[in-house]
């Protein structure tokens, strides 16, 4: 089952300059793995060196943050849409 994944503007250059791509996966974790396998340059911007999603990367299943669902184990239903939504954070040195 292929699911539509919306890519934010700054990351589109690593996803074939597409606004959305179709990726397969039964769960969000599987889908993200397939996404970053197909578009490997996305990986370093989505995940830190420890393999954790970067703090500013939010994954939405339709309008719901996946952290409030079952995280990577969240099952994907037919017609679900996934969005990668960044939080923008800044600040001076502590």
């Amino acid at each position: 089952m292929a699911t539509k994944v919306f890519i934010p503007t700054p990351l589109r250059q690593y996803a074939g300059n597409q606004k959305a791509v179709n990726v397969s996966g039964e769960t969000v974790g599987e889908l993200l793995n397939n996404l970053t396998t197909e578009f490997s340059a996305l990986r370093k911007h989505l995940y830190n060196e420890e393999g954790q999603l970067r703090s500013f990367v939010n994954i939405y299943v339709n309008d719901e943050d996946f952290r409030y669902l079952q995280g990577p184990a969240t099952n994907i239903q037919e017609n679900d849409e996934i969005s990668i939504i960044p939080s923008i954070a800044g600040g001076k040195e502590a």
Binding site: P10, L11, Q13, H45, S87
Partner: peptide, 13 residues
């Protein structure tokens, strides 16, 4: 930019 800015930055912007 601070280290915090760097840790949270996205490319292209």
């Amino acid at each position: 930019p601070s280290q915090y800015d760097l840790d949270n930055a996205l490319p292209w912007y």
